[in-house]
Design a protein around this nucleic acid. Structure first.
Lengths: 188, 188, 188, 188
DNA sequence: CATGAATGAGCATTCATTCAT
DNA sequence: GATGAATGAATGCTCATTCAT
């Protein structure tokens, strides 16, 4: 099992990096095989098909992101918690640009099944809890949860893309301004 | 010339719809051909390659979006102008979901060349002018232009995606709240 | 008729040059059209098909070669006549390398019909007459005509190819040696 | 390795025969595939492209020819050696008319790269040695090596083509005359 | 007659997937 | 289990030829 999960991990990492650079459809399985040192046969032993591999990688990454988001999260002060979540999310993305690239490609690709998207949605439940708390405590505007999630997510991702694409280097100062912008959007 | 631009238009529309539904890489030229009633040879008469077709379609669409954004725009009241632009952009996207789908797919796809992206960037110059005016008149926060563009764009697109995906139906009331959210992010 | 034969000539010359450089099968009719300034429709008005065009060009060129071969030919001295023919043939080829390139490509290409090859064979009848005279006058060895033709032709073409390919620059002196070599092969 | 070279050999033989009959450009890879029983994918597994396949086949054949030329070659008597080489070359060609057809098509085709032609040129080094020996021993005329090679090669090929095309059946007697003709061209 | 846009069969090549070893 | 050669359907693209204008 150790070997097996190792291989899964190797395949995941290789596929992620290749897809981030070459794109979802310019990354043949044979390339994943040669770059990872895992034979195509072995890849197909671990993943039924390319579609399955990519869907599972998508899930894997979504989980990783949401785990990172709550690192060091402290429930005491709401605004502080908001800052932590925003910042964690942002830094994870800029430290893992290949993850962002992969996730963005998947966001519209028909290869990701609806059931996968639904499954991935479960990872945001802690975030939903946090938002609901903000609403019920009259800290956040009483918008629909999806509305609030969309604003936060789109702002973080937009800033991460600006930073990674070098269109705007997000210093600590600018990051603080961006968090403030998101906050002003949503606070009551 | 009439016939020519007609064919281009037909190919553009067909490709747009097919790609929106099937994806950039699940839309073979033969499908564009059969669905449009234009032979593959004729498509290649108008567009050097699939890559060229998609790059030109991307440019075409970016122009269309930015033309739509300034429809009925009035310079008198700044906030009113902001509302108009936001709303125009949003309504164009939800009325043309295939455009949004296509544009989103292109946003990360390596098939779009950097030179195309740069060429497309020129279309936002009126928007940049509007933002600069807001900053110089002490109406908007003095953020980097790219920062402000990113916030506005990401918010509009996020709301349009919520609406189109039926995760949240954006009524006039919610639209007003979303505009307000973007505005609060950016106003001084 | 003048206009017509003009166009034929233009098409012939263009096709010859293009085929010499790009090869028989890398020379699309559209290229012949654009390079010659004659529309594809007009080309097809003059030549039923690409095959017909090439077959007629082949015939045209074979005739041209054989006309050149007897320029300044004088029946008085047999050896002198042999020299003239050999030299004429050789100089025509090195002065028209595109003709040689085209002819060589056609020599093995299935696009040239047998009937065309037979028709082209008629042009060598003066040469056959000259050879038969040499045999009957006990100047040449009494070989089969095809044998003698093959030796002369292959030697001239081989020397022309050496010269054009720059593998050996055929000076007047070397040319004289080559003629001598052919002559020694065949003389009684 | 055995399987591998087997497949290469099968592909080579099939391609050679098909190209000899249909021509270099009327032999689609799909035909090579169906005629050889090797799937297109497998052909592309062994040869990067059609161009590579043809270039490698060209090299393969040139080597085969030059190996055949020195079969039974004996250094003792120079004239005897000349006869052997000439005859070996000639008989190899008439026994392998497809090789001749293929080689002739390649001789002018742009698909054969210059680097391939240069690589193929190395095979004639034993022949060059033989010719140089003839010159230094005052048996052959002191012509340029390329001159002598061209005469011999062009004569052998011309005779082989006469024979194969049935324009002249080369009996043993005629072959002896042809060798004699070449010899008289070149001997001192 | 001339034009050149349009046609569509045909080709080289790719790549997800299988399966004999 | 693991391997990677083999499969072959599918794709982007070409080009000889036609025909409406």
């Amino acid at each position: 099992m150790n070997v097996r999960s190792n291989k899964r991990e190797i395949i995941f990492n290789t596929a992620l990096d290749l897809i981030a650079v070459h794109g979802l459809h310019n990354t043949p399985m044979s390339l994943v095989s040669s770059a990872s040192g895992v034979s195509t046969g072995a890849i197909y032993h671990h993943f039924e098909s390319k579609e399955v591999l990519i869907n599972e990688l998508y899930l894997h990454i979504k989980e990783e992101i949401h785990r990172a988001v709550f690192t060091g999260f402290d429930d005491t002060d709401y605004r502080e918690g908001f800052n932590t979540i925003w910042s964690n999310y942002f830094h994870f993305l800029i430290q893992h640009p290949n993850v962002l690239s992969f996730a963005e490609q998947c966001s519209t690709a028909p290869i990701i099944k609806n059931s996968t998207r639904q499954e991935a949605a479960q990872f945001i439940s802690p975030l939903i809890g946090f938002i609901q708390k903000g609403i019920s405590e009259k800290i956040l505007m009483p918008h629909d949860i999806n509305f609030i999630l969309a604003i936060i997510n789109s702002n973080v991702v937009a800033m991460a893309k600006l930073h990674i694409s070098h269109h705007l280097t997000i210093t600590e100062e600018i990051e603080a301004q961006a968090i403030e912008a998101s906050w002003k959007s949503l606070k009551l």
